[in-house]
Amino acid sequence: MSDKKQILHPLGKGSSFSLDFTYSFWWNLMLITVGSLLVGIGLRSLAVPHEFIPGGIFGLASLIYYKTGILSPGWLFLILNVPLFVFAWIKVSRRFFWYSAYATIAATGFYELINIPMYVESQLYASVACGLITGFGSGIVLRSLGSNGGLDVIAVYLFQRFNIGIGKVYIIFNFILFSISLLEMSLDLIIASLILVFISAIAVEKTLSLFNQRKVVFIISDKAEEISNDILNTLKQSGTFLKGFGAYSKQEKNILMTVVNNVQLKKLEEIAFSHDDNVLFIVENTFSVVGSSFSKRKVY
């Protein structure tokens, strides 16, 4: 044990069992298929009938289709992805290439083959509904080891290589795309399309954090040892002791740090206060926890 901290076993003494499907082929295939189905339905049933620009490469494909009538947005999207997939093969990884290629082909196939009419007359309602459906679908795909194709390929590469946020890549590309669209389309359609893109981005973020969000809890108490043992036995959850020094008491004490999900949080609070009415219970939100008994680090 270090004089700075003591790490307890994540799942209790002698246990190392952890369920994680991150690198399972069939799990990734299922995520991509379901997500691509939702994306295809949302685009075919709501975006294109209202002539929205969904943003990204499909947005560019849609703009070309609206102004030229050449092929369909689905086929144009597939064609525009070809050079991006060559880039993914060379610069990212073979696994990322195959998963992303499958996602693009699946989305194109679902778009071309499945037509579920959604009779939404209001542009506002249609843009919100489309943003929710496509954003949720895209988020499901991004939970896999692949991507939705299109701009995701460039965004993932820039993020891995230069730590450039994925959102920044989309903002720059969509700014250029919508600037061009302003010259060709009505302002009402552009605003509705921007609402669609904004709602979709929020839906993607919420979908990605749906099962990843955790609470980091710091428990400061003179009975940290007893609280830790109770957490380990009751919740089967680990903790880490950090050495603290009281500013007023000038005494050294253990600070218990642990990570739990939303369901476990209330039970953890009950455990802490059942041992010490004067415990200091600090909770912080965290988007994702990777490693140990939690989810594996995603490597494309």
Rank of each mutant, 00 (worst) to 15 (best):
F281R: 03
V156W: 00
V169I: 14
L84D: 10
F159Q: 15
L242T: 01
G131Q: 02
S288E: 15
K296V: 00
A88P: 05
L124V: 14
K253G: 02
L78F: 14
T33M: 00
I116G: 08
G246A: 10
E112A: 09
I202G: 01
I227D: 08
I191A: 11
V86F: 14
A192L: 01
M185H: 09
L183K: 09
I271Q: 09
L187Y: 12
S36Q: 05
R44T: 07
P73Y: 07
N174C: 03
S274N: 15
L183R: 04
G42P: 07
F211P: 02
V34C: 14
I195C: 07
L232P: 03
I105N: 06
P49K: 09
M30L: 15
L208M: 11
F294S: 04
I220N: 12
E225T: 10
Y99P: 06
A129C: 10
P10H: 08
S179A: 13
I172T: 13
L43A: 09
I166F: 00
D20W: 03
E51Q: 15
S288W: 00
S127L: 04
S24P: 02
A126T: 12
V290S: 11
Y248N: 11
L76I: 14
F110M: 05
F58H: 09
F17K: 12
Y170T: 04
K206T: 00
W26L: 14
D188W: 02
I190G: 10
G167W: 01
A103N: 09
V128D: 06
N254W: 02
K5A: 12
Y65D: 07
G150R: 07
A203R: 02
S138N: 15
S2M: 05
G69N: 12
V128A: 02
M30C: 13
G246P: 07
G137E: 08
R44C: 04
A224G: 14
V141E: 11
A126W: 07
I166E: 03
A47I: 14
G165T: 13
G59M: 07
G69W: 03
N212S: 15
T234G: 03
A101H: 02
L232D: 08
V263F: 10
W89C: 05
E184T: 14
S16T: 13
A224I: 02
I114T: 08
K266F: 13
K91E: 09
S249N: 15
S24E: 13
N278Q: 13
L142M: 14
A106V: 10
L124K: 08
S179D: 05
I140W: 04
A203T: 10
E225Y: 11
V289Q: 01
T234Y: 11
M30Y: 10
N28V: 05
S45P: 08
N148G: 12
V263P: 01
Q6D: 12
I172F: 10
G239Y: 06
I202A: 09
T286Y: 00
I202P: 01
M118R: 04
N28D: 12
G59F: 08
